[in-house]
């Protein structure tokens, strides 16, 4: 009987393998194309304003925007409303994120799907739906007043008012905060809470003293995402809160208003201002948050 042919295989010449560089090149080209697109888009904004002001002597258009009271009001409102929205969002995102991360219950998948609605719904539709909500609310409360004589009134005005700006931002941004918090809680092993329980904690104590401090990085990430999202929220704010200058005009609205009257330089200038604000806030949060975290965790 002959020796099986497979026995000869290891004796053959050393197998040559192909080069690895095409793989790395592919990674760099595919990934790099997107990063480059982001960067050249921003650079184009800067270049456009520079060329228009210095090259074509259109500095007035930029100056007009920078001294515009309406734009400064919009800046203030944008920063303040985004901050308020972020605080409100975290208050709902922490409990919902924790619930989804830790508990298996009936209707969990449904809850998960409901929380996706603000993310997948077209922003304009959210604005319209909010308007309809308050219209219907008005009809219902009028009906109740007619039957019972009890006058139900909102403590504050929402449509076409500042609370409306915040509500419109909140409805969308909170969904992103929930996602971020859930991921953050998912990363903290439940074992730690169980240990806290054996050490004498109630569920609440284990949460406040062990889980939440450990989720500080996640809270920061959720806050950042929510804030950035709120700063850029346009559709729902425009539809639900309107675009009244020095009342409900936020920066994205300003960009849209400038654009709609054909003032491209003004629109781009405000856009760059928003980029600047976002970058400053992100850097401040990173630096502040990092110091806060590393001070304790690494001692």
């Amino acid at each position: 009987m002959s020796v099986p042919s497979s026995a000869k295989l290891p004796e053959g010449p050393r197998r040559r393998v192909g080069a690895d560089w095409p793989f790395y090149l592919g990674l760099i080209l595919l990934g790099g194309s997107y990063v480059a697109l982001i960067l050249i888009t921003l650079l184009a904004d800067v270049a456009f304003v520079a060329i228009e002001t210095i090259g074509h002597g259109h500095g007035d258009a930029v100056r007009q925007v920078l001294v515009s009271e309406e734009v400064w009001y919009a800046t203030k409102l944008s920063v303040l409303s985004s901050t308020a929205t972020t605080v409100l969002s975290l208050w709902v995102a922490v409990p919902i994120g924790y619930l989804l991360s830790r508990f298996k219950f009936r209707g969990r998948a449904l809850l998960d799907a409901i929380l996706d609605i603000p993310i997948v719904l077209p922003p304009l539709v959210i604005g319209v739906s909010l308007l309809i909500l308050f219209k219907t609310g008005g009809i219902v409360s009028a009906w109740i007043a007619e039957r019972t004589g009890i006058e139900l009134a909102m403590p504050v005005e929402f449509p076409y008012a500042i609370p409306g700006v915040i509500l419109a931002q909140f409805l969308v941004a909170a969904a992103f905060a929930v996602r971020a918090m859930r991921l953050s809680f998912d990363e903290i092993p439940f074992r730690k809470e169980e240990v806290a329980l054996t050490l004498g904690c109630t569920r609440g104590q284990a949460f406040w003293r062990v889980v939440l401090p450990e989720a500080r990085g996640g809270l920061l990430a959720a806050a950042t995402v929510t804030w950035a999202r709120s700063l850029g929220e346009f559709g729902p704010v425009l539809v639900f809160a309107g675009a009244t200058p020095k009342r409900t005009e936020v920066l994205p609205t300003s960009v849209f208003l400038q654009f709609s009257v054909g003032d491209l330089i003004g629109a781009v200038t405000i856009s760059l201002g928003m980029v600047l604000i976002a970058v400053v806030v992100l850097v401040v949060v990173r630096v502040f948050g990092h110091r806060d975290l590393s001070g304790r965790a690494l001692g």
Binding site: K192, V195, A196, T198, L199, V210, P213, E214, R296
Partner: peptide, 14 residues
């Protein structure tokens, strides 16, 4: 007193 497998220490505490 419970000593879990990988310690499960609390990262936010000294």
């Amino acid at each position: 007193g419970f000593v879990p497998q990988d310690g499960a220490l609390f990262r936010s505490m000294s």
